[in-house]
Nucleic acid binder design. Structure first.
Lengths: 152, 152
DNA sequence: CAGAGAATGTTGAGCTTTCAACTGATGGTC
DNA sequence: GACCATCAGTTGAAAGCTCAACATTCTCTG
């Protein structure tokens, strides 16, 4: 065993594991709650990003970056969402390589249904459980993490 | 649109998204860094839990609960780890339904190799990026989340 | 102690994600 | 304007995960 490794302190270790377990439980719970709408949290996040974008559409690569997913994964997922008629793909005029993923009316309608339940779940299982200061700290920490790691 | 939904405030929304993106990037990074040892972060966590347990072994259900995984998933994963000779399965004397998952010497040796790199990654991409107070807040928040959601 | 119900762990099929290879378009550069 | 590295997105096979059904064992209750 080398002596050089800077192991986590006991408190850090406990916090790190709480984060791992808490995240696993939270994501499973949110996923579960969305299942009644036929969505997973991954699908849900895709629909949300599209709903917020101008003309409710985004380029595939842009969307993939925002969610930190591989393009391949996004292609497959959007393929399924397209089959479900929640998203439509159209080719991009200005860059012929490009593809727009666009939210359909059905997709928007489903999102309107699901969103209140989902937000309620995020509140009940995370936001409302923490003090405003602690939750803000979570935001700060992971914003820094995000910045530090950057794009894939 | 109903008026009853308590949407997230702008700050909460930003923090929530930072958490989602930061977590995605962090897990991808840690996973990547473990790949050189032929492990994913999921495999790694399994090996760690076993290494800490008495006799370096745990019952399948116990292990599954600690990682918040389905038993089925764990069965499949441990099957692969067993093929790789990192883990061994032995039947439990006192409860004939039960199975012990036990770390092999090779598994322990691999863990000893991987752990310093992994911990360095956790530090570099998370722990050392945050103030002690903020990181403690992360621990508190997700401990509460964990407690609140409970077992599956 | 018989029997119902619950718990442990596995199985295999189906679905999702990853990985590497690929097509086609773009943007320099010489 | 031909060339070449790069970028956008897709493809299909392999690997991993989920889900429901199952066999076995345990436990509790009458």
């Amino acid at each position: 065993m080398t002596t050089g490794t800077r192991w986590l302190t006991a408190e850090q270790q406990v916090a790190w594991r709480a984060y791992l377990l808490g995240t696993a439980r939270l994501m499973a719970k949110l996923d579960d709650d969305l299942r009644q709408f036929g969505l997973g949290i991954n699908d849900y996040e895709i629909l949300v990003r599209l709903s917020e974008a101008p003309d409710r559409r985004l380029r595939m690569a842009d969307l993939a970056d925002r969610l930190h997913q591989s393009r391949s994964r996004l292609t497959h997922t959007v393929g399924r969402l397209e089959t479900a008629e929640l998203v439509r793909r159209t080719s991009c005029k200005s860059d012929k390589r490009g593809v727009w993923a666009e939210l359909t009316d059905a997709g928007f309608a489903l999102l309107e249904q699901a969103a209140p339940h989902h937000v309620e779940g995020v509140r009940a299982n995370l936001v409302d459980l923490a003090s405003a200061e602690d939750f803000a700290a979570v935001g700060r920490v992971f914003d820094t993490v995000s910045e530090h790691i950057g794009q894939r």
